[in-house]
């Protein structure tokens, strides 16, 4: 279970999260929705451990471990995975080299055997096919020249290869057309299982048509201000964020 208690965090001098509480039991998918500037992306970076995102109060426990005491890569070894809103392009690092390095780094950290080139190739072929990612695409440098949809599908491929148990999807729907949205959602739905906790962070309700959450939370000014079932997302879709936000609601 993920247990976030009274989380306060700041970026440089600005306090963005101001006492956030959240619990996601294993086997559940929760969604966090909120207006721009409410702290959605900050929460995902704080969970990932990005530099410059400083926890000033509160705790993040996963499976009895205090995530905030782990380095970025140790969190991944512990099962954490963040699908990024803006996956970066890295010229000069081949996609396959990257995927294999990451997969084997995580396997090694978890005490599993590293995969040799042939074993890894089979695994990638298998997983990439489901996501309609061609092997040609993987011959390119990491994310270089990928369309928005390709980048997001590549994120999901990374997720499946790293086999996480705590998954955060940060605005994964942004920049996706309907087909890509469907493929990405199927990838996420396949990950649903009794031993995983999944958090979907989104501005819009539309992703939740494909990934049905068990719980929906509204984030405003760095706190969860309301929680409910999937119907809460539909309500927000109608009413907008005017009552929660800084007037920047969609």
């Amino acid at each position: 279970m993920l247990e976030i208690k009274n989380l306060h965090a700041r970026v440089e001098e600005d306090e963005i999260l101001r006492g956030l509480d959240l619990e996601i039991p294993k086997g559940e998918v929760h969604a966090i929705m909120g207006p721009n500037g409410s702290g959605k992306s900050t929460l995902s970076y704080v969970l990932a451990g990005k530099d410059d995102y400083e926890i000033t109060e509160g705790s993040i426990m996963w499976d009895g471990k205090d995530l905030s005491e782990l380095t970025i890569d140790e969190r991944v070894a512990a099962g954490f995975f963040l699908a990024m809103q803006y996956p970066v392009e890295i010229p000069g690092v081949g996609s396959m080299t990257f995927l294999r390095t990451a997969t084997n780094a995580v396997r090694k950290a978890r005490g599993q055997s590293e995969l040799n080139a042939a074993e890894f190739m089979r695994l990638v072929r298998d997983k990439a096919g489901d996501l309609q990612i061609s092997m040609d695409m993987l011959k390119r440098p990491l994310n270089v020249g990928f369309s928005g949809g390709e980048k997001k599908r590549a994120e999901i491929l990374q997720m499946t290869l790293l086999d996480p148990s705590l998954i955060v999807l940060d605005e994964t729907d942004s920049g996706l057309d309907i087909d890509a949205l469907r493929i990405v959602s199927e990838g996420v739905n396949k990950m649903r299982s009794p031993d995983k906790s999944i958090l979907v962070i989104t501005h819009y309700q539309r992703l939740l048509d494909y990934i049905t959450p068990d719980r929906v939370h509204v984030l405003s000014k760095g706190k969860i201000v309301r929680s409910g079932g999937p119907e809460l997302a539909l309500e927000l879709e109608k009413s907008g964020y005017a009552e929660y936000g800084e007037g920047k609601a969609a």
């Binding site: 970025i72 991944v76 070894a77 970066v88 890295i90 000069g92 990451a102 780094a105 990374q158 790293l162």
Partner: peptide
């Protein structure tokens, strides 16, 4: 730093992530 974060957020230890980026640069 953003590239470094991305690599580390995929489980690659910092030393290895730095080396990957240094090599990506020089290998061109």
């Amino acid at each position: 730093e953003n590239l470094l974060f991305y690599l580390r957020a995929r489980g690659i230890p910092e030393d290895k992530a730095r080396a990957l980026l240094v090599n990506a640069f020089i290998d061109e």
